[in-house]
Amino acid sequence: MIKERKKNLYNLAIWTWSWVATLAIATFGSKYIWDDHRVLTALAVSVNFVHGILMIIANRKMFNNFDELERKIHLESLALTLGLAVVVGLSYSLLEVTNLIANDAEISNLVIFIGLTYLILVTINTRRYR
């Protein structure tokens, strides 16, 4: 079980880093490397998309290898994260639409919020069952 878990975690880490790397290439490449070449940009975005899908598959594989308590911990954390992401995301968007905040509502802020919320909730839920 531990060996399988290490392998799944290693796979997820590899696909996550490659997704982040291809995202950085797709984001900054068109500006600094290939000077807004449309075909190369479309190719970079496609490669990033495929890496994203492979990262999701690796995550699913790791999730399916969890035992019952770990699944419960992660499911509770995911449910709360999803709820908070929808509520906070829409409130954030509404603040921008109604001009209550000066800057644009960036999707990256929501992604950071989701990541941090999930991390905090998994930590809290793991401690609950210690």
């Binding site: 079980m1 035992d67 019952e68 308590l69 770990e70 793991t126 069952y129 210690r130």
Partner: peptide, 12 residues
């Protein structure tokens, strides 16, 4: 290890 769960699960 025998049951096929994590040590944390046994503890919980």
């Amino acid at each position: 290890d025998i049951i096929g769960v994590s040590r944390q699960t046994i503890n919980a």
